[in-house]
């Protein structure tokens, strides 16, 4: 953690993959909770929401990164919101054009992507300081991580709460659905469950790394 920043510049692959696992926006940074809880009641909704966010995040990262020398820091937040809101509106119209049912299911949460702190967070903390290529990779990685997280919440909720995945029945019809899982409270339970799993895994990896380091210090250096 306390490594000097200049030690080795992260590779492009790193910029992409950090959002998937190590800095996963939902499970590690705990950002974007509103859509993660509200629109994850089915796998399809969760996937659509994740993809919409991925799209907005990547494009806003690209635009903000390319305009980073043009925007004075006093008005940066207002400008970022303007850019993000534009892409959200674009997504909103696009989803309406593709499927009204999907738009009905996602409801107000499409517009609320504007205030998803994940997007503003990446714009402020990353895109405004990095060249455009890296910023796009970061947006793609974070967006994919967000999509994966939403999908893993949505899949659990749909399987338990409805006995289906993407609307396809998984069990015999005598399966008793756990209705609580598709209710809002199910979102909290599932998110909490995944957070437990994630922090447990991270602790376990940390412990493994420390044990390895004790046995063979060489490993630490090559990392």
């Amino acid at each position: 953690m306390a490594l000097p920043p200049s030690q080795d510049a992260p590779s492009p692959m790193d910029e992409f993959s950090k959002g998937l696992w190590r800095e996963n926006p939902v499970f590690v940074q705990v950002l974007g909770m509103c859509p993660a809880l509200a629109v994850s009641n089915t796998a399809a909704n969760a996937l659509a929401m994740g993809l919409a966010t991925l799209f907005v995040l990547t494009l806003s990262n690209a635009v903000i990164s390319s305009l980073r020398h043009f925007i004075p820091k006093q008005v940066r937040i207002a400008t970022y919101i303007l850019v993000i809101a534009t892409f959200v509106t674009v997504v909103d119209y696009a989803i309406q054009a593709v499927s009204l049912d999907l738009h009905k299911a996602l409801g107000a949460f499409i517009s609320l992507i504007v205030v998803n702190c994940l997007i503003l967070g990446r714009a402020e903390a990353f895109a405004s300081k990095q060249p455009i290529g890296v910023a796009v990779l970061d947006g793609l990685g974070m967006g994919t991580g967000f999509t994966l997280a939403l999908f893993s919440i949505g899949a659990v909720r749909e399987i338990l709460g409805n006995g289906t995945l993407f609307g396809i029945a998984l069990f015999h019809e005598s399966f008793q659905p756990w209705i609580v899982m598709i209710l809002p409270s199910g979102g909290f339970f599932t998110l909490a469950g995944w957070l437990i799993v994630f922090s447990w895994l991270q602790e376990w990896r940390e412990r493994r790394r420390r044990e390895n380091a004790v046995q063979s210090p060489v490993v630490e250096v090559t990392r």
Partner: peptide, 24 residues
Amino acid sequence: PMYRAMVGVGLLCGVLIVGVFLTT
């Protein structure tokens, strides 16, 4: 620079939204 940034970005965004709105 502040006006330039806000108005410039605003105009670009406006044009984009109107374009998408009209197409969809």
